[in-house]
Computed example of a mutant assay.
Amino acid sequence: MTTTTGMGRSNARQMLTGPPLPEPAEQVDLRRMRPKGFSDESRLLPEHVWALMGCPCGKYT
């Protein structure tokens, strides 16, 4: 089994004896969305300042 699937013995055992996996569509729909830390209006100011500075990025500064 491990050579066929590429899984280790313990992972294969967990997959065979553990709870059934959810369908991919159900898993995406049951995600919990985190609340936004800032409002959309408060995000515009740093973007405006970033554009005024010439759009610097950390790689080149």
Rank of each mutant, 00 (worst) to 15 (best):
E23F: 01
L21G: 02
L30R: 15
S39L: 10
L45A: 12
Q27D: 06
P56G: 04
S42I: 10
T2C: 09
M33Y: 12
M53L: 15
C57N: 11
S39A: 13
A25L: 12
G54L: 03
A25G: 11
R31Y: 04
Y60W: 04
D29L: 11
M53R: 13
G18D: 01
Y60N: 11
L45D: 06
M53H: 03
L45M: 09
R34Q: 12
L16E: 07
L30W: 01
L44R: 14
L21N: 04
A51N: 12
A25R: 15
L45F: 05
M7H: 03
K59M: 02
G58N: 04
R32N: 06
F38S: 12
C57K: 14
G8T: 11
K59C: 01
M33F: 12
D40H: 09
H48L: 12
D29T: 05
L30V: 02
A51V: 05
M7S: 03
L30G: 05
V28T: 12
R31C: 10
A25E: 15
C55I: 02
G58L: 03
N11W: 00
L44I: 11
A51I: 05
P56Q: 06
M15F: 08
T2N: 11
M7W: 00
P22T: 07
P19M: 07
C57P: 01
T5K: 08
A51P: 00
T5M: 07
R9N: 08
D40Q: 11
R43T: 13
G8C: 09
G54Q: 04
R32E: 14
P22V: 06
H48E: 13
L16P: 00
Q27V: 06
D29P: 00
L21C: 04
A25V: 14
P35Q: 08
L45V: 14
L21V: 07
S10P: 00
H48C: 08
K36E: 15
V28Q: 14
V49L: 14
M7P: 00
V28F: 07
M1C: 06
M15W: 07
M53N: 07
M7L: 15
P22I: 06
H48P: 00
S39V: 08
T2E: 14
V28R: 15
W50I: 08
E47A: 14
